[in-house]
């Protein structure tokens, strides 16, 4: 599935939530991420992302979001609509 999606991702790292553990940097197959001089994960080669999802699934601090580029740009904004929520109270 991966190659088809290459170059189609929008990756967001929330620096406030990133603790710089380096897991995403180490295991990214496309070497998309690096640790900045501040010790935070930053996106350096977004075009190489194959959207395998590893960084997102393995970020212990939920600080990385990988999205479909076309979809995000069509929406103009990072999506904030509520998901298929199953919450009775909302």
């Amino acid at each position: 599935m991966a190659n088809k999606k290459k170059g189609k991702s929008k990756i967001t790292v929330y620096p406030d939530w990133c603790k710089g553990c380096g897991i995403c940097v180490e295991f990214c197959p496309g070497r998309v991420l690096e640790l900045s001089s501040q010790g935070k994960a930053t996106v350096v080669r977004e075009q190489d992302c194959i959207r395998c999802g590893f960084c997102e699934l393995h970020c212990p601090d939920f600080a990385i979001v990988v999205q479909d580029k076309d979809f995000v740009e069509a929406d103009k904004l990072p999506r904030r609509r509520s998901a298929k929520t199953t919450d009775k109270g909302e």
Binding site: D61, F62, A63, I64, V65, Q67, A83
Partner: peptide, 23 residues
């Protein structure tokens, strides 16, 4: 997908990142 789902289940009145160590 991914962490956006998770964000919807986190308590918004709690401070993040959580207290656990990096990694």
């Amino acid at each position: 997908t991914g962490n956006e789902i998770i964000h919807q289940y986190l308590r918004h009145n709690k401070k993040f990142p959580h207290v656990l160590c990096a990694g």
